[in-house]
Amino acid sequence: MKVVCAGGGPAGLYLAILLKRLNPSHDITVHERNPEGSTYGWGVTYWRGLLDRLQEHDPDSARAIADASVRWSEGVAHVRGLSTRHHGDEGFGIGRHRLLGLLADRARALGVRLEYESELTEPPAGADLVVAADGVHSALRARHADAFGTEISAGRNHYIWLGTTKVFDAFTFAFTETAHGWIWAYGYGCGDGHSTCVVECAPETFTGLGLDRTDEAEGRALLERLFADVLDGHRLIGRPGAGWLTFRTLTNRTWHSGNLVLLGDAAHTTHYSIGAGTTLALEDAMCLADALHSHAGLSEALAAYERRRMPELLSAQSAARYSARWYENLPRYIDLPPHRMFALLGQRHSPLLPYVPPQVYYGLDKAAGQLEALRRFKRWLGPRAAGALHARSAPRRG
């Protein structure tokens, strides 16, 4: 099969790797519009579950990614001079530049052709399969938007994706109050002595602070002052042309048309606050590769990919919507004691939280956690031990 992929991001590169591993005779070319070694953003996050799935699909690239990643198992929130720290699941961070380099090296080693500074705007003739993995601004998808049923909605808040030489030892949240409202940052290590620092604020704070009028250097200097306590004197680092954005949620009615199929952010986006974009893109590639390998006909394979993958995304898409809404309604939660606010930050994916008073929700969630701990203890005891306890405590007869 001759496969042409537009987009040399994680989704496109990983699909090429998987298809070559499944059938080395596939003729695969990946076209990337940007020069090799250039990328937007800083680090990306993922969790143990993705690493396990990478190991199942290609142990070599999984091992390389794991070795290049930093790890954390705690989260910390800073608000009004107070801090609270919680232990959680193991998380991983890796520089996007490093991730793409590892995937590109693996793809080349398997015989994939990589063409940089080469943009596809139309499906090329002679290809059996054309993959649009060229992101939210996909040129291939845009040319055929009616066929895919593309819908895009803009979020309310403004955000900017920066780097810093401050190496965070935990996934860090920092909330700063200004005369124009709250502004906050998410920080996490991504290797090579750097961390990612995403800063977000409401529109009125954005304009009130003058961030809509300052140049990039002035804007970063202002943010450094606002987050001086967590940056510990370290600078914020930008990339040329990487300014403030509003998040664009993209969906498509269908992901394939003829021999053209959508992958990763070209097919769907989820709000960055759940840290799942790269994971979902790589899982798309796994699903599409499995479908192509399992079905003899291309149309059947693409239909199977869409039929399986779309429902799998529903929970993540729902979580992302509620997570974005939590931050858009930050004043509702910010006056809680820090440990309670942080607890509800961890519950921001809940569809119930927006409709229950925060203090009430916190109490209910804490009570439910205690009940769950009791249920886990009873499961650990097992049916025989539980039965024995019941027999000892039952009233004696006769």
Rank of each mutant, 00 (worst) to 15 (best):
residue 73 S to E: 14
residue 73 S to G: 15
residue 83 S to D: 02
residue 60 D to F: 05
residue 56 E to R: 14
residue 53 R to P: 04
residue 71 R to P: 01
residue 87 H to K: 14
residue 55 Q to E: 15
residue 76 V to H: 00
residue 77 A to V: 08
residue 76 V to M: 10
residue 65 I to Y: 00
residue 67 D to T: 09
residue 61 S to Y: 13
residue 87 H to M: 08
residue 62 A to L: 10
residue 53 R to E: 15
residue 61 S to A: 07
residue 83 S to W: 01
residue 77 A to W: 01
residue 64 A to W: 13
residue 82 L to E: 11
residue 81 G to C: 01
residue 74 E to V: 00
residue 74 E to N: 03
residue 55 Q to N: 12
residue 64 A to L: 15
residue 85 R to M: 05
residue 56 E to M: 11
residue 66 A to N: 07
residue 83 S to R: 06
residue 75 G to Y: 06
residue 86 H to W: 08
residue 56 E to N: 12
residue 62 A to C: 09
residue 65 I to P: 01
residue 71 R to H: 09
residue 83 S to V: 04
residue 74 E to Y: 06
residue 66 A to P: 01
residue 84 T to W: 12
residue 68 A to P: 03
residue 62 A to Q: 11
residue 87 H to Q: 14
residue 67 D to P: 01
residue 77 A to Y: 00
residue 57 H to Q: 14
residue 67 D to F: 05
residue 71 R to W: 06
residue 77 A to H: 00
residue 52 D to E: 15
residue 70 V to Y: 03
residue 66 A to T: 02
residue 66 A to E: 15
residue 61 S to G: 08
residue 59 P to R: 08
residue 59 P to K: 06
residue 65 I to C: 05
residue 56 E to Q: 14
residue 75 G to K: 10
residue 64 A to S: 14
residue 60 D to C: 07
residue 78 H to W: 13
residue 64 A to G: 11
residue 67 D to C: 06
residue 85 R to P: 04
residue 55 Q to G: 12
residue 58 D to I: 10
residue 60 D to H: 11
residue 70 V to E: 15
residue 87 H to Y: 09
residue 61 S to H: 12
residue 55 Q to S: 14
residue 55 Q to T: 14
residue 65 I to Q: 01
residue 61 S to D: 12
residue 72 W to G: 04
residue 64 A to F: 07
residue 74 E to L: 00
residue 71 R to Y: 05
residue 80 R to D: 08
residue 82 L to D: 06
residue 73 S to K: 15
residue 54 L to R: 06
residue 68 A to L: 08
residue 73 S to C: 08
residue 72 W to P: 00
residue 66 A to V: 01
residue 83 S to H: 01
residue 59 P to Y: 03
residue 70 V to K: 03
residue 59 P to S: 07
residue 78 H to I: 04
residue 54 L to T: 10
residue 62 A to M: 11
residue 61 S to T: 15
residue 74 E to F: 02
residue 56 E to F: 02
residue 65 I to A: 03
residue 85 R to A: 03
residue 64 A to D: 14
residue 85 R to D: 00
residue 55 Q to P: 02
residue 51 L to V: 08
residue 59 P to H: 03
residue 62 A to K: 10
residue 58 D to E: 12
residue 64 A to M: 09
residue 59 P to C: 06
residue 56 E to C: 08
residue 67 D to G: 09
residue 63 R to E: 15
residue 60 D to E: 13
residue 84 T to N: 05
residue 83 S to N: 00
residue 76 V to G: 04
residue 73 S to I: 05
residue 75 G to C: 07
residue 63 R to M: 09
residue 72 W to E: 02
residue 85 R to V: 04
residue 80 R to P: 02
residue 58 D to N: 13
residue 51 L to K: 02
residue 59 P to E: 06
residue 75 G to Q: 08
residue 72 W to I: 06
residue 66 A to D: 13
residue 52 D to Q: 12
residue 83 S to Q: 07
residue 51 L to M: 13
residue 81 G to R: 00
residue 52 D to F: 03
residue 67 D to Y: 00
residue 87 H to D: 10
residue 81 G to A: 02
residue 66 A to G: 07
residue 76 V to L: 11
residue 82 L to R: 07
residue 62 A to W: 12
residue 51 L to E: 12
residue 55 Q to C: 10
residue 79 V to Y: 02
residue 73 S to Y: 03
residue 81 G to H: 01
residue 70 V to G: 12
residue 60 D to Y: 03
residue 84 T to D: 07
residue 79 V to C: 13
residue 64 A to Y: 09
